[in-house]
Nucleic acid binder design. Structure first.
Lengths: 254, 254
DNA sequence: TAGTGGTCTAGACCACGCT
DNA sequence: GCGTGGTCTAGACCACTAG
């Protein structure tokens, strides 16, 4: 008995045809994303050749789409065997998404108090982290972050004023830093680089966070980068460890 | 004056031709990886059509290679303009690489003492994290980890015995857990999922780590997954915060 | 407007693995 | 054996952008 073809399983609903007015790859991607999202992990996907024939498109087009989904971790392949749905890692949070989004996604109400917002000359350390010459103007922002009106974190961040001229003239209690960078300056955070450690807070910081100095804090220290490698911001934040946990996922690099 | 073509810059050394006996894509990938590694970020890459003509290969082949490098974060594209080298995020460490590799990469000598290695029935919590039925056999391993003969971490991890039969019969003081899983069971860690928090240690744990109970620890709690979604291990580890920092990077999902 | 990357075609042949 | 994914070709046309 010959090996059976990988046709769709009975319970797998597939559109009969693609709309002619939109990119075929996009439509196929949506179809496959739905399969991967609805089904659990390990679900068999119809073969590349099946999709090519079924939708009257080239197998190269199918492969292109599947390649991306594999790169995104939605599918995985077994050479000589088949393609399956993978389990999707939960969405990554820390530092790429803004504080506001992060807290909202955890189902709470974020709040902000600006402690400090000024322009100063970059010292050696900040200049190095921002990858700018020492003495260049730096916008320094310190904010106390609240969740449901309780203090959660003390955020200190630095941005190059040459890269973001006028960045010091916003109201950072109301405005999202990341959103402003994207909308006003067209800069999209592409990746970050964070060192996570635990420390007991200095007494002033403990007072701001309304904790005892014996209560540990998570320290998130890192830089945020654009795709061209420019450093968008360099910061160091103190989080109350009793109220905050960092969730992180890592994928094996291929 | 017409727009100049994106030919290689003068200082860019390119092999004249590809070897005929190896996949062309692989060779091109190596060439582009070298460019991306040697040059800093933001370096202009010759156009796809240039590579296609120069090496007498199809543009599709070139695109396939560049697609992967973009997915891996080594290059980035600007539609209608050009392709550039990106800054490479530093190598990801936590939990995907083994403790031994992690410590070695930090230039120190790792050590291990097995505190506990036994098989028990899965309680509700462990069963849930391992995604196995409650009561199923679980291999529980507790190890004290040393760096340069100083205690660094207390690792507690759980594995399904049904998934890895015989896993309880190795010497885990000498053997690498991840390496054994890969070599004996053909299971490759694909992604992890870690919650990072800070805590003061219980007094017994503090004693094992040779610290005061007032000294904070990093708590790494998470699961390690194979590409088919199976949970390889579920663990919770205590790291001395004065000696250990977690480095993590995240990339924007496309 | 010319050169870039983005989508897509219609094939070929190879490498691998299940039955 | 035969169906799977992996590599590769030689083109076409579209979308976008620097000069």
């Amino acid at each position: 008995m010959p090996r059976p073809k990988h046709v769709p399983a009975d319970d797998l609903v597939l559109p009969d045809a693609l709309a002619p007015d939109r990119p075929k790859g996009d439509q196929l991607r949506e179809i496959l994303e739905n399969i991967a999202t609805d089904a659990g992990p390990g679900r068999l996907i119809p073969s590349e050749r099946f999709f090519a024939e079924h939708y009257q498109i080239s197998r190269s087009t199918v492969r292109l789409v599947i390649n991306r989904l594999v790169a995104d971790g939605l599918l995985y392949r077994q050479h000589g065997n088949a393609t399956f749905t993978a389990e999707r890692p939960p969405r990554q949070i820390d530092m790429l998404t803004s504080f506001t989004e992060d807290i909202r996604s955890r189902g709470a109400v974020p709040g902000t108090k600006v402690l400090l917002a000024l322009v100063e000359s970059a010292g050696a350390q900040i200049a190095g982290r921002l990858n700018i010459p020492p003495g260049a103007p730096v916008f320094r922002l310190e904010r106390l972050r609240f969740v449901d009106d309780e203090p959660l974190a003390l955020e200190r961040t630095n941005l190059s004023l040459d890269l973001f001229p006028g960045i010091d003239e916003y109201d950072w209690a109301a405005q999202s830093l990341h959103k402003t960078l994207e909308e006003r300056f067209g800069v999209v955070p592409e990746w970050n680089d964070t060192a996570i450690s635990a420390e007991l807070p200095q007494s002033q910081d403990a007072a701001l966070l309304e904790i005892e100095p014996s209560q540990p804090c998570l320290v998130l220290s890192g830089t945020l980068h654009a795709s061209d490698g420019r450093v968008i911001e360099a910061g160091r934040s103190l989080y109350r460890a009793d109220r905050y946990t960092v969730f992180t996922t890592a994928r094996r690099s291929r």
